[in-house]
C-alpha cells in the first residue's frame, strides 16, 4: 500500500515537473523575441531621426540613412503585390471552385505544397537565370519584385483556398437556384465573402516578402545606392513613366545586411536602427492582418 502511494506521488511529481518544463519551452521563443527587441532598441533607437529616413547611405556612419532602402522596399512591394495577388487569388479560386478531381489537379496541389517548402534563395537563382538573363530585365526593381512574387505565391494561393473553403455550400446553392452562372456566383458571392481571409493571407505574405533578403541578393541588388529610381509621375508628356521598373535598387534588409557586415561599431548602430524600422513594418502588417481577420469574423455570421 505504502509502495503504491509512493509511486503515485512520484508520478504526480513527474507530471508537475513536465508542466513547468512545458511552460518554459513555450516561453523560450517569447524570451528571444523580447531580448531581440530590447537589444535593437537599446542599440538603435537613438539613431532614428528624420535625417535617418531622408539620407542616402554613406561612408560616414553618422551621415548614412535609409532613403534609398525604404523607397526600394516600397517599389518592390508594389511589383510583388501586383504580380502575386491576381495570380494567387485566381489560382486559389480555380482549385476550390472549378477544379475537377483528376491527376492534373493532384499535380497542381502537390506542386504548390512543394513550392512552399523550397528555400527562398532558390527563388533568387530562378529569378537570376530567368528574369535577369533570359528575359533581360536586368538587376532591376521588376526582377526583384517578381522574384518575391513567386516566393509568396503559394502563401496567397493557400490563404485564398482556406478562405473560400469556409463558405458554406448553401450560399452557392442559393445563387445557382436564382439562375446565376458559376462565374456570377464566384464574383458576387464567393469573392466578397472570402475577402477577409484572402486579405489576411496577402498581408502576411507581403510581410514575409518585405523581410526577405536572400533572393534579392541573388538577383544582384546593389548594396550601395545613392540615388532614387526614376519617379513614376512627371510633368512632361506622357506624365506616367514605367522606367523605374528597370532601375537598380536596394531594399531595407540588404541595407541592414551591409551595415552588419562591416567591422566598425558605428555601422552596427545604423543596422540596429534600420532593423527597428523593418521590424516595425512587418509587425504593423501582421497586426493589420490579425485585425482584419477579427473584423471579418465578427461581421459574417452564416
Amino acid at each position: 500500500m505504502k509502495d503504491i502511494k509512493k509511486r503515485i506521488a512520484f508520478n504526480k511529481f513527474k507530471d508537475y515537473s513536465f508542466r513547468v518544463l512545458g511552460l518554459l519551452s513555450t516561453f523560450v521563443g517569447l524570451a528571444l523575441l523580447f531580448a531581440l527587441i530590447a537589444d535593437l532598441f537599446m542599440e538603435g533607437a537613438p539613431r532614428i531621426s528624420y535625417k535617418f529616413f531622408a539620407s542616402f547611405p554613406s561612408r560616414f556612419p553618422e551621415e548614412a540613412g535609409i532613403l534609398s532602402a525604404w523607397v526600394g522596399t516600397l517599389l518592390i512591394m508594389l511589383v510583388t503585390a501586383f504580380a502575386a495577388i491576381p495570380l494567387g487569388v485566381a489560382a486559389g479560386i480555380y482549385l476550390e471552385e472549378y477544379a475537377k478531381k483528376n491527376w492534373l489537379t493532384d499535380i497542381i496541389e502537390i506542386n504548390i505544397a512543394n513550392l512552399a517548402g523550397v528555400p527562398s534563395i532558390i527563388y533568387g537563382l530562378l529569378a537570376l537565370g530567368m528574369f535577369v538573363y533570359f528575359f533581360k530585365f536586368g538587376e532591376s526593381v521588376l526582377t526583384g519584385g517578381l522574384a518575391l512574387a513567386l516566393l509568396i505565391l503559394p502563401m496567397v494561393i493557400m490563404a485564398t483556398r482556406e478562405a473560400i473553403r469556409a463558405i458554406p455550400n448553401s450560399i452557392r446553392e442559393a445563387s445557382y437556384a436564382l439562375g446565376a452562372t458559376k462565374w456570377q456566383t464566384v464574383w458576387w458571392h464567393i469573392i466578397p465573402y472570402s475577402t477577409g481571409g484572402i486579405l489576411t493571407g496577402i498581408i502576411i505574405g507581403l510581410s514575409r516578402a518585405i523581410g526577405e533578403t536572400a533572393p534579392i541578393i541573388t538577383v544582384g541588388a546593389l548594396t550601395f545606392i545613392a540615388f532614387l529610381p526614376t519617379p513614376p509621375v512627371s510633368s512632361d508628356f506622357p506624365f506616367i513613366s514605367f522606367k523605374w521598373l528597370f532601375d537598380p535598387f536596394t531594399v531595407m534588409p540588404i541595407q541592414i545586411f551591409n551595415w552588419v557586415s562591416r567591422p566598425q561599431q558605428e555601422f552596427h548602430v545604423n543596422a540596429a536602427a534600420a532593423g527597428i524600422v523593418l521590424l516595425c513594418m512587418t509587425l504593423l502588417m501582421n497586426a493589420a492582418a490579425i485585425y482584419i481577420r477579427y473584423r471579418f469574423r465578427k461581421k459574417i455570421k452564416w
Binding site: L33, E212, F257, A272, T282, N286
Partner: peptide
C-alpha cells in the same frame, strides 16, 4: 509565437552576431 516567424531573418542574423 507566430510573430517569431514574422521577424526578418536578417534581424536574427544581427542578433546572433552581435
Amino acid at each position: 509565437l507566430e510573430l517569431l516567424a514574422a521577424v526578418p531573418t536578417v534581424v536574427y542574423g544581427y542578433f546572433a552576431l552581435l
